[in-house]
Amino acid sequence: MSFRVLQAGILSLLQDSGRFGQHRIGLTNGGPLDPDAFAWCNRLLQNTAGATAIEISFGGLQLEAQVDTYICVTGALMPLRINKVEKDLWHVHPVKAGDIIALDFSQEGTRSYLGVADGFQVEPSFGSTATVMRESIGGLNGDKLQVNDSIACAAVEQRRQLYLLRKHQPHYQNIATVRVIPGYQQAHFSRLQQRLFFSHAYTVSERCDRMGYRLEGPPISCEIEGILSEGICYGAIQIPADGQPIVLLNDRQTIGGYPKIGSALSVDAAHLAQLKPGGTVHFAPISQHGAHNAIHLAASFQNRLPISELE
């Protein structure tokens, strides 16, 4: 029982919540670029948190169901059609064997998540099914989905058809404010350079991917050129020699030698990953305590949103 890939789209990757505890052999995290939309996909499907779903970047995925089950798509605004009939996003839908599920190209945002009841059944590598193409690890043979791939899942007869009301669904404008926790080599950036960084708008460059988002704007200079290679956490903002910031994301390399001005708050880095090239980014400082608070507030807010059910 499975789904067959008819069209792979630009970049469709099997992802669970990510690969953790493997940095010491050089493996990065992988996992969903927008963990919030990913979590909603599994929550609406009544799956265990972190069940394997497909992350679709930009759109263009087409699947054929070869099983009777339920699906849900959350995240970027990619029109969903089941047998050519448009269906709501953020909404659980039944599918039958033979149905064609098509996701069009995104009109707002860049990443969406297609999940299935009980999750896709993929053999984990190093404790996770997350696909990291750079490492050839996870997913099906460490690669993005290809035409004719078959992705296993269970047949599910009954599932509540839950959905999230439109007013509670996020909007993906091509602009984001990214709060930055001071840290790493921040002391090596002068006050003037820090002020420059926090007061100007940056633009998402064409070079933005799952490793990191490269931004363009006023160049930031650092008093030191490089550092002894050290561990890079999720969200770390590197300033290479050209002064253009790179926000490092899920597929970043785990160590590196460029100075870092701080790290993006995870909830904001997830918004950043929904931007397209040309999108606008503002950075704002936030204290460590403020960050802690923001993460818990965001989690609490998500948990308290009411879920609706189709009668």
Binding site: F20, G21, H23, R24, L228, E230
Partner: peptide, 18 residues
Amino acid sequence: LVDLVPSYASLLIIYDVM
């Protein structure tokens, strides 16, 4: 503890903020 990255002269420590 979530993960550790030992390097030349530093140790990055990632913890579970929840």
